[in-house]
Amino acid sequence: MYDLVEQGEVVEIEGKAMFAVRSRGATFPIMPADELDRLSR
């Protein structure tokens, strides 16, 4: 799981910053970037 999260990045999806993982040209949003920031404090 940690290896997968390490590959994640913040991307804009429909005007919202989302933490997401990309694979073979597909983007898989996981959660809003601001929520991730809040939870990781």
Rank of each mutant, 00 (worst) to 15 (best):
A17I: 00
E14Q: 08
F19Y: 12
M31H: 02
R38H: 12
R38C: 05
T27W: 01
R24V: 06
L36C: 11
K16R: 14
S23I: 01
Y2P: 00
P29Y: 06
E6S: 14
R38G: 04
A33V: 06
V21P: 02
G15D: 09
V21D: 01
M1T: 04
K16H: 08
E14F: 03
E35C: 01
G25E: 01
Q7S: 09
M18P: 00
V11S: 05
T27A: 12
D37L: 15
G8S: 15
L4G: 03
V21L: 13
L4R: 04
R22K: 13
V21W: 03
R24W: 00
A26G: 03
D34I: 12
P32F: 01
S40H: 07
D3Y: 10
S40P: 03
L39A: 13
D37N: 14
I13D: 00
A20C: 07
P32Q: 10
I13K: 09
K16D: 06
G25L: 02
G8E: 04
V11A: 08
G8Y: 01
M1W: 10
R41E: 15
M1E: 06
R41Y: 15
A17R: 13
S40M: 13
E14T: 03
S23T: 05
I13S: 04
E14L: 03
A26S: 12
D34F: 09
P32G: 03
K16F: 04
L39R: 15
I13L: 14
A26K: 15
G15Q: 06
M31E: 05
R22S: 08
P32M: 09
Q7A: 10
M1D: 08
Q7T: 05
R41I: 14
A20W: 02
S40N: 12
A33K: 11
M31K: 06
V10N: 14
P29V: 04
L36Y: 09
G15N: 09
A33M: 10
E14S: 07
V11R: 14
E12V: 05
T27S: 12
E9Y: 03
D37W: 13
E6H: 10
A33E: 10
S40F: 12
V11H: 01
M1K: 06
A33L: 13
M31S: 03
L4W: 04
R24T: 05
A20R: 00
L36S: 13
V5R: 10
L4H: 04
F19E: 06
D34V: 13
A26N: 12
G15S: 14
I13F: 04
Q7E: 11
L4V: 09
Q7H: 09
V21M: 06
T27H: 01
E14I: 01
A17L: 11
D34L: 09
V21R: 02
G8L: 03
L36E: 08
E12T: 07
A20T: 02
D34Y: 11
A20P: 04
E6M: 12
D3W: 07
M1R: 07
Y2T: 09
